[in-house]
Structures are given as C-alpha cells and as structure tokens.
C-alpha cells in the first residue's frame, strides 16, 4: 500500500503561515516554496509529498484523494461544497464573508429586505454558492452574478446592487464607498483530509492533526497578553 502522504499546500496569501506551521511541527521543508515553478516536492525519507495548488483547487484535490491532506481557507471549502473532513481550525488567514451595498442606497433603504423590495436584487460575487445559500436561507430572492475579481467595482458601475465578498480589515469596502449590511460567516484556514485517506492512513493523519492542533493552541496562549 502506498504509504506516502500527499499534502496539498496553497499558493498565495495563506502560504507563508502554512509553511511556518509545517516548520513548527517539524515537517521537512528544504527547498519548498509555493510561488515558484516546481509544483511537487518529495521527501522519500519521511514518505511525504507536497503538491502546490491554487487554493480554490485544494478541496477538489483532497475530495478526489489526489491529496490526502490540504490546508485551505474555510471560505474556499464552503464555496467548493466539497465532501472532505475538516480536522483542525488553524486560526490564521482570518476573514469574513459579508453582504455589502453602496452607502447611499443602504442609507435610503435601512434594511436588507427593504433594499431588495426597492428592486435592488442583483448580487455580484466570486462565491455564487455561498451567496445563493445565504439568501435562500433568509428566504430572499436575488439574482447572482458571478465575477472573478474586484467585486467592489460592480455596484459602482451599476452591474449589481449588492456584493458578497470576503473582507479582512474592511478597508476595500470603505475605499469604494460600500458598507457591510449583513455578516454571513467568519473563515480561517483549516486542515482538511480525504475521507478515505482518513480511514486508511488514520494513524499518520491523526498524528499530524494532533501536532497541528497543539501548535495552534500553543501559539494562541503564547500571543495572549
């Protein structure tokens, strides 16, 4: 049986903290970098293989078992709707899903229901699944417009009335004269596992999860003043 553990690591904004965490729990990292051209790093002695993926693809790699484990934001997991096991909240990469609207329109309407009742029903987002779930659960009918980036632009040019996006500090919203009108949920990075790997390579995965959980807890108590 292939005892190699394949670990999907994210490119981009989560990569720094991810590598830091792997270092903390003593995993080999010689020469590993996430922004270069090499996408596979193999450590025969530890029977460990890293693959470097776009964050949005990580739930897919893990769901299909092409990777046993992965580190990715809860925002991405939710949007992918992938059937994976979520083992540890790694606590970094904090952001929130919110609904936002142009300040002026929001001030006229005063509530989400009122805003929608005024005929403002188009929602631009990179996260159509999260957005659709949110509005459906609220019993609100909207039209979702899928965009690929710079969502804040859409309300300003009249493409959409609302946006659903992730915010970390809220600065982008303010700079574009948008206000948060409803929170959806907060998200942080998670350790996820394939559901078959979790059973067949249980000892290795459970050990890895325990180490990460301990490292996260230690860091939390360490940073509390």
């Amino acid at each position: 049986m292939d005892q190699y553990l394949t670990f999907a690591l994210p490119k981009g904004k989560l990569s720094g903290k991810t590598l830091e965490l792997l270092h903390t729990i003593g995993l080999p990292l010689d020469g590993v970098e996430t922004e270069g051209r090499q996408l596979v790093f193999t450590f025969p002695e530890e029977e460990l293989r890293y693959i470097i993926c776009r964050p949005t693809d990580i739930p897919t790699y893990v769901e299909y078992g092409a990777a046993d484990l992965g580190i990715v934001g809860k925002d991405t997991i939710e949007e992918a709707g992938a059937d994976v096991f979520e083992l540890v909240d790694l606590k970094f990469g904090y952001c929130r899903f919110v609904v936002a609207a142009l300040r002026e329109k929001w001030e006229q309407a005063g509530s989400l229901e009122e805003l929608l009742a005024m005929g403002h029903r188009r929602v631009a987002t990179k996260f159509p699944r999260v957005a659709a779930n949110f509005f459906r659960n609220q019993g609100l009918q909207v039209e979702i417009i899928k965009l690929h980036g710079n969502i804040e632009l859409a309300p300003q040019v009249g493409l959409a009335d609302l946006i659903v996006d992730i915010v970390s500090t809220g600065r982008t919203l303010r700079e574009n004269d948008l206000v948060e009108v409803a929170p959806i949920f907060p998200a942080t990075a998670r350790l996820i596992a394939n559901r078959v790997s979790y059973r067949l390579k249980h000892r290795q995965l459970a050990e890895m999860a325990a180490k990460m959980r301990a490292a996260v807890e230690k860091q939390e108590t360490g940073t509390v003043r």
Binding site: V62, G65, V196
Partner: peptide, 25 residues
Amino acid sequence: DLGILRAFDYYTGIVFEGYVPGLGF
C-alpha cells in the same frame, strides 16, 4: 471506526464502508 456514520438518520446499528487505497471515495 466509530466515526463512520454514513446516512446517519437512516441507519440504526452496525454500518460499514469499503475503501481502496488511492481512490478518494
């Protein structure tokens, strides 16, 4: 594995799943 629950509401007792290495399902 007591974590194997399958369609939890519907099953009432012993449950099981078969796995093959390298296949994600």
